[in-house]
Design a protein around this nucleic acid. Structure first.
Lengths: 145, 145
DNA sequence: TCACATTGCTCAGTATGCTGAGTATTTCTG
DNA sequence: CAGAAATACTCAGCATACTGAGCAATGTGA
């Protein structure tokens, strides 16, 4: 059986894309705060008071992964994690002032970085790429809700 | 500063795409052998006798990552890793008979899986998606050779 | 009300993937 | 030919990301 051309394999390409992105992120956005961490800050800026379960759905990350990630952000005092007095199972999450400040800074930088990252494509191609990825990802996420 | 729409962030989408892919991979291809491991098997089927450095360039994985990954595959006796007698720095890598057999099996299954994964898109959109991802990833990889 | 299910979180274990430091081997240079 | 540079690999440390097991709190039905 002959070997296969990996450039026709979406999974391989997705990994390369993600990898290339995270390198550029480290160079242009932040070395301390990763892209998934930014997603969490962003979600909490939008809807303060979420619990970890809800947060994990918003950013499409596993509950376990969220727990680690939130613990690191809490350790850096970018967010507060307190037990919900109304429901002792939940952790209620809110950005601190530091967290909001960092989020503001990263919003600007990610915008700049995204322009560089997508620069090889023209405007229409950029929209097409984002739309097609979103469709495939959403459909696959549906398969195991 | 208002929160941002993550569906316009290629990094976030890339992570979701990769994540959705690896879930489907586990269900449709293999639970034991991951997609990067398949990429390694495939590269060694194509060019037996590569060293780890060359292999890492072929599959776009870090040298450290390759070392771990190859060690696991060697532990499962899917490949042989022997010190090059001509150059004592290199590990020469070759698939075993088991490795070739597994590769054959996975080629069939990945083809099936890729059809399911890309099913939300029509044929032209599928080609477009793969081409655009490849362009962005290649360009970003160039930025730091 | 009390047993049972559900829900939210934590913890252990594993794989991927990086950086940076260190080791061994080979190659290049003076 | 000896010292320096380059190369290939290994190892430690960290973040992301999963599964599965377990625990605590809440909700539900008989």
């Amino acid at each position: 059986m002959a070997a296969v051309d990996l450039s026709t394999h979406p999974g391989h390409l997705a990994r390369r894309l993600q990898q290339a992105h995270s390198l550029l992120w480290g160079a242009m956005v932040s070395e301390e705060t990763t892209s998934p961490q930014f997603a969490v800050l962003n979600a909490l800026e939008e809807k303060p008071g979420m619990d970890q379960r809800t947060l994990s759905e918003h950013v499409h990350l596993d509950r376990s992964t969220i727990a680690d990630l939130v613990a690191r952000l809490a350790g850096r005092e970018l967010l507060e994690r307190v037990r919900d007095p109304e429901d002792g199972r939940r952790n209620v999450l809110k950005l601190t002032e530091d967290g909001r400040r960092l989020h503001r800074k990263l919003v600007t930088r990610t915008a700049r970085m995204n322009r560089v990252f997508l620069a090889p494509l023209d405007g229409e191609e950029q929209e097409t790429l984002l739309r097609l990825i979103a469709r495939v990802a959403s459909a696959a996420e549906e398969l195991r809700g």
